[in-house]
Each structure stands twice: as C-alpha cells, then as structure tokens.
Amino acid sequence: MLPVKSIPAFNDNYIWLIENSQQGCAVVDPGDAQPVLDYLAKHNLELEAILITHHHNDHIGGVAELVRQNPNVDVLGPLNEPIPTVTQTLQGGDQFELFGERFLVLDLEGHTSGHIGFVGDGKLFCGDVLFSGGCGRVFEGTMEQMWQSLDKLAKLPIETEVYCAHEYTLSNLAFALAVEPENPHLLAYRDEVIRLRGLERPTLPTTIELEKRINPFLRLEEVAVLKSVTNRTPANDPLSVFTALREWKNEF
C-alpha cells in the first residue's frame, strides 16, 4: 500500500501526496505550488507525477510552477478539460501505473463537464465529486451526470479509502443531520469529526463503507431520506431524490 500524506492549502483544500519507497512522489490536484515545494524540500522527495481531476484553479493553480521547477514531471489529467500543462490525457477506462500500482480512471462528470477520478491500491482520489457527508456542486454538468458519478463511486469496494479534495466534513454533516436527524451512525460520526477538528486533524480519508452509512447523497432509497424530501419532489426515483437533495443543499 502506498503511503498518502495530506498537504493543506488555502482555507480547506487538501493536496494529496503519494509516496513510493525510493524518495519519489506524486501529488493530486496541487492548487498551490508553495506548500508542495516546502514539503518536498523538508522530506527530500522528488516529484515524479502530478494527477489532476478537473480544471478549477484551486486544483491546478500550482501546476505550472511545479512543472517549471521539476521539468521532467509527468502531468496526467482529463481529456475533456482545458488544462495546458497536461502531458498525458486520460478518460474513463484508461489505466496507468504509479509506483508499481495499477490505477483505473473513472469519468465523474457533473461538477465539471470532464471531471475524472483515480482508483487503485485501495484508494480513490475523487476531486470535488464525493465529499465526506456530501457531494460537489453541479456547475458545468447535469444533475443526472452527478448522480450517475456518485452511483459509480458507491459501487466501489466498501473498504476503498476516499481522498476528497476539501475539508468540508463538519458543514456537510450539519446538512446530513437535517436530512436524517436520527441516523445513529451519523450522530456518532458527527461527534468524532468535532473531536478531530478540535485537534486540528483532518477528517479524511473516509471510506465508501462509512459514506454509505452517513452520506445522504449515497442513501437515496433510504426511508428517512425519502421522507425528508417529500415536500420538495413528488417523485421518489433516485435521480429526483438526488436533485431535490442537491437543490436543498445549495440553499442550506
């Protein structure tokens, strides 16, 4: 299993750093170069690859400087997004090897039109699609695309570690509790998240198993979730329920 470290950036971003055993590493979604450069220097690591999930600046803003200082670095990113620094474009179904582990590329449209994710070594790097207790906003894609992307992630092995790109957990749980106020798993997790944040520790990674217990966007057929949106949609199919939840979260 490849070690993964979190590098905080901006107010609530995480740049994920994946290490190998020979002082090499890769980073995922480096929106800011300086925290990465500082970490590389402190731990004497060589940057070998940059993985990008989508084109928003808080995920790619540091790439150009990292490439300037590491001219041999490989930059892997989505085929269908305008990211000029990418050296290898990827789309769903593609595979690549990283430090001896095979990673599969997933198409995860919805947040943006060409968003992708990476799954391998028991880990999922999902950018701004799935968060602990929540999901990303639908900016460029459609509600149906976002629902399908989340459904795709929900079908991954439950032990998969989920490396989201933002520390949104506590605010997401406030909404999740509005949807399912009596969910015992959610109540226990809220207390643990409060403890972790009080210690200034990250709440990530999460797991698919945990998210299926506490995340309303992965619980669209649960009775309590259906009941919570009865005044927002006359339909109870998963897409209608997801749309009602996402619109509710937008105004929450």
Rank of each mutant, 00 (worst) to 15 (best):
M1D: 04
L2Q: 09
P3K: 15
A9I: 15
F10R: 12
D12L: 11
L17Q: 06
E19C: 10
N20W: 07
Q22G: 08
Q23W: 10
V27H: 06
V28T: 06
D29M: 10
P35E: 08
V36G: 03
D38C: 09
D38Y: 06
Y39E: 01
L40N: 02
K42T: 13
E46S: 14
L47C: 06
A49H: 14
I52E: 10
T53Y: 05
H54K: 04
G62M: 00
V63L: 06
V63K: 10
A64M: 04
A64L: 05
A64I: 01
R68M: 10
N70D: 09
P71T: 05
V73S: 05
D74Y: 06
G77R: 09
N80W: 11
E81K: 03
P82H: 06
P84I: 02
V86M: 13
T89H: 15
G92C: 03
Q95P: 01
L98G: 03
F99H: 08
F99K: 04
G100M: 07
R102G: 04
V105K: 07
V105Q: 09
L106T: 01
E109A: 15
G110A: 02
T112F: 01
S113E: 05
G114M: 03
G120K: 07
G120N: 04
D121P: 08
L124K: 09
C126R: 07
G127V: 00
G127C: 04
L130Q: 01
F131V: 02
S132T: 14
G133T: 02
C135E: 10
R137M: 12
R137K: 12
F139V: 13
M146W: 00
W147Y: 15
W147E: 14
W147H: 15
Q148F: 04
P157S: 14
V162L: 12
Y163I: 04
L170P: 05
S171F: 08
L177F: 07
L177E: 13
A178I: 04
A178M: 10
V179A: 01
E180M: 14
E180A: 12
E192T: 13
I194T: 11
R195Q: 15
L196F: 04
L196R: 15
L196Y: 06
R197P: 02
R201G: 00
P202L: 11
T203G: 07
T203S: 13
L204F: 05
P205M: 00
T206C: 08
E209M: 09
L210A: 00
R213D: 08
L218H: 09
L220Q: 01
E221F: 01
E221G: 01
E222V: 14
L226N: 02
K227D: 15
S228G: 00
T230P: 00
T233F: 03
A235F: 14
L239E: 07
S240W: 07
V241M: 10
F242I: 01
T243Y: 06
A244W: 12
L245G: 05
L245E: 08
R246W: 12
R246F: 05
E247S: 11
E247V: 14
E247A: 11
K249S: 05
K249L: 09
N250T: 08
F252V: 01
F252G: 02
